[in-house]
């Protein structure tokens, strides 16, 4: 429960979220969303919720990124905004 880690992680999380929504290439946006999930996992672990961190690492940074990449493979990779 070190507060300075908390503050740094929170600010990084907001930056990553905004960046992943602004990238026009969808694969890069998906990977940035994966980074977002990893940072969330660190934040949960720092706040003392290790079960939630474990689940977020397995699900958010693993399986969810794979689903998004699979869908982008079957549709287009470019987005207009």
């Amino acid at each position: 429960m070190i507060w300075s880690y908390d503050a740094i992680l929170l600010i990084l999380i907001v930056i990553t979220a905004i960046v992943s929504l602004s990238i026009k290439d969808l694969i890069s946006a998906t990977i940035t969303l994966g980074v977002f999930s990893f940072l969330l996992c660190l934040l949960w672990a720092e706040m003392g919720a290790v079960d939630v961190a474990f689940t977020e690492a397995a699900v958010g940074a693993g399986v969810s990124t794979v689903f998004l990449v699979a869908t982008i493979y079957n549709t287009t990779r470019k987005s207009s905004d």
Binding site: S20, L21, L26, A29, F36, L68, T71, S79, D81
Partner: peptide, 13 residues
């Protein structure tokens, strides 16, 4: 957002 996948990413956030 105009792109459907970006909308879903917004939902995840």
């Amino acid at each position: 957002k105009n792109n459907l996948i970006k909308k879903i990413m917004g939902l995840a956030i």
